[in-house]
Design a protein around this nucleic acid. Structure first.
Lengths: 197, 197
DNA sequence: GTCTATAGGCAGATAGAC
DNA sequence: GTCTATCTGCCTATAGAC
């Protein structure tokens, strides 16, 4: 990963955007040529096959994501605010008309090599575990209901992130995504139940 | 739609399975030829362009789905049991290694014609509204918390259905999907909060 | 590293015989 | 309706010059 030069990174930048908007099977090396400005044969020099491209792209994306999660941890001290910051990260992507890179690839997973399959599983696990830690922290701080099951709720939270982006983009209403994530937060805090008293 | 003959339906059957497993851009008319047993040129007789195929496929899928929703309404009288039955419908699809047809197409939406875009929006709206009615019914019956916001929660429920399938298939653990939907149900009933008392 | 040139195959799609 | 035959173009990928 670290041994990638500037050109390789520019290719990955273009491939990421194309994957997140059109889908991995809907763009070609020719499209990358047009975006990056070097010939397809040169792109093959960096990424011999398209599957190589998918794999490196997933690895870099995951690494960047982990860094962003660390950045949130450094900036936000409460579990709840960390979860909100994560939602904001996804919302940022959506506002650019894109979906999660790994979500897009996960849809095409049957047509992708086993190596990518495992990378995607890893990406989802990383998020679920981070969300799980944020929930546990929120519980310790008293912001999140004690009765929340951490494993179930973190998997659930990720599902809303991924599915919510997809549906919101189709509806062409970004605010729907924010509303959905607020709903997830509300469920975690249990605050909606207060009104029933 | 009703003017489709048996061959057209067999083509759509094959196209649906391929879309739900591989993705719309990952199969070709040649693949359909192998599945259905007639030449690609004959398939073009029924569906001149691949976009026509996508459109008719989406229409038929939506129609079939609406019928399944009506069937649930006829069999289940409680709002909560209807939501569980809907989850079971999605779980059935997932157990065959497939994702929701419209979810798959929604990921590829930028590369699809406007007509399909609107059909997908319609499909999601149909589900959200049906879920909304089930939630309202559940509230009237006392199974679902009064404080639940119907519009927000139905959109949220759909997001979990779609995102949950995708993540669960990647993790290759179908039971994760069931667990996620149980979590959604738990949130709606507010029952998890009871333990906090 | 980037290029030109090209291979070999497959994509979506059409024409016209039966 | 289904076929054979074919078009045109694009796809991934490679060889080899600079």
């Amino acid at each position: 990963m670290q041994d990638l030069n500037a050109t390789a990174h520019r290719i990955l930048d273009a491939a990421e955007v194309l994957t997140q908007t059109l889908g991995f099977n809907a763009f070609s090396y020719k499209d990358l040529q047009n975006e990056v400005g070097i010939k397809t044969s040169s792109i093959h020099y960096y990424f011999p096959t398209k599957h190589d491209l998918a794999s490196t792209m997933t690895e870099r994306y995951t690494q960047g994501f982990v860094e962003q999660l660390s950045s949130i941890d450094a900036q936000k001290s409460s579990g709840l605010s960390r979860l909100k910051a994560l939602s904001q990260l996804f919302n940022q992507v959506l506002s650019e008309g894109k979906l999660c890179l790994c979500g897009m690839l996960a849809c095409d997973i049957v047509a992708l090599p086993q190596a990518v399959h495992e990378q995607l599983r890893h990406f989802f696990s990383v998020i679920e575990e981070w969300v799980g830690r944020a929930i546990a922290l929120g519980q310790a701080q008293g912001d999140i209901a004690q009765s929340i099951d951490i494993k179930l709720s973190s998997a659930h939270f990720l599902a809303v992130l991924e599915g919510g982006m997809m549906v919101a983009r189709t509806h062409q209403k970004d605010h729907n995504f924010e509303a959905m994530m607020n709903q997830s937060i509300t469920y975690l805090t249990g605050s909606f139940k207060e009104a029933d008293k």
